[in-house]
């Protein structure tokens, strides 16, 4: 099932349960998978048209009135385009708004460089009070949606729109502030977020053949990072690799380095190396920016050598 379909289904349940849950679009409801909900929830869904900054501040105004707004757009327009509205109307004003950015990083594929946010987490991560969550698969997203809605305060949700391979088991329990151990290992800690999670599990099998026992931890919440889990794993293995569909500046890698600042532990990164995106399909883009299983394996080996 597509992630956006899961998201829309969960939103519908939340709106059904609580008339104060409202959703605002900026002419991308069709892309977000929520367009069909407009008929069902005419008093809870509002399309602001192509005016993202207005959407963000209207959401803040609705929040000040006791509503629980969700706003949605493509990741670059939900973050860098409305950074000041997120900072002031939402975060500084302490308003309870959920911000959904779809098609993060290279997943914008055929929309190309203009729509490809390599920096969205970096943009919002430096705003005080912001929580950043990036789902991995359908089960995690389903478990997360009610938790995100119940959390009072701003959250940026980095949503891959298409189907994702299953990583989490049935009955998975989600804790917004707790990273998830996916594979125990002793030689290296791989911290991963979003669509790269399954790749890391694949890389771990290859690494094992090479005699490297990698620990895989899904850091689904990039801010605040689960320091306890990250530090415990890094201290145990003594080497770190971060893997993300984002610029290596400002996102998961930065968050993990900040966490490890007082530790003498080498940390390498697989991510977008401070460059803009370009048009193409995912297999091409993965190769172009180095988001491949092969690159994860190679960089993991480099990290091990630094121990």
């Amino acid at each position: 099932m597509e992630m956006r379909a899961v998201y829309a289904e969960c939103l519908a349940q939340l709106m059904e349960q609580d008339r104060h849950v409202v959703v605002l679009d900026a002419d991308l409801a069709r892309a977000s998978g929520t367009l069909k909900l407009y008929e069902r929830f005419p008093r809870q869904m509002f399309d602001c048209g192509i005016a993202e900054q207005n959407m963000a501040s209207i959401a803040a105004g609705l929040s000040s009135y006791g509503f629980k707004p969700w706003i949605e757009s493509f990741a670059p327009f939900a973050t860098r385009r409305i950074c000041d509205q997120i900072a002031i109307s939402i975060c500084y004003a302490k308003q309870n708004v959920k911000i959904v950015g779809t098609d993060p990083g290279i997943s914008a594929e055929l929309n190309g460089g203009t729509h490809m946010s390599m920096e969205d987490m970096g943009v919002v991560r430096s705003i005080p009070g912001m929580v950043i969550y990036e789902p991995v698969d359908e089960r995690q997203l389903r478990a997360a949606m009610p938790v995100l809605n119940a959390y009072v305060g701003p959250v940026y949700i980095r949503l891959f729109r298409k189907a994702q391979p299953d990583v989490f088991p049935e009955g998975y329990k989600f804790d917004l502030f707790k990273a998830n151990l996916l594979r125990e290992g002793k030689d290296l800690s791989i911290f991963v977020t979003g669509m790269m999670t399954k790749d890391c599990l694949d890389a771990a099998r290859i690494l094992l053949e090479k005699g490297i026992d990698a620990e895989i931890i899904n850091v689904h919440t990039i801010k605040p990072v689960d320091r306890e889990t990250v530090l415990a794993s890094a201290r145990k293995t003594g080497a770190v690799l971060t893997v993300e569909n984002h610029n290596v500046i400002g996102g998961l890698h930065s968050a993990i380095l900040e966490t490890l600042a007082r530790e003498k532990i080498p940390a390498m990164a697989v991510g977008v190396q401070d460059r803009f995106g370009e048009v193409g399909k995912l297999p091409y883009l993965r190769e172009a920016v180095g988001l491949t299983v092969e690159n994860i394996v190679a960089t993991a080996e480099e990290a091990i050598k630094l121990k």
């Binding site: 105004g61 000040s64 009135y65 000041d84």
Partner: peptide
């Protein structure tokens, strides 16, 4: 931050 409060007021009016 100029312009934003006006949108917030519109949001409150909708609310």
């Amino acid at each position: 931050s100029l312009g934003q409060g006006f949108s917030c007021a519109v949001g409150a009016a909708l609310g």
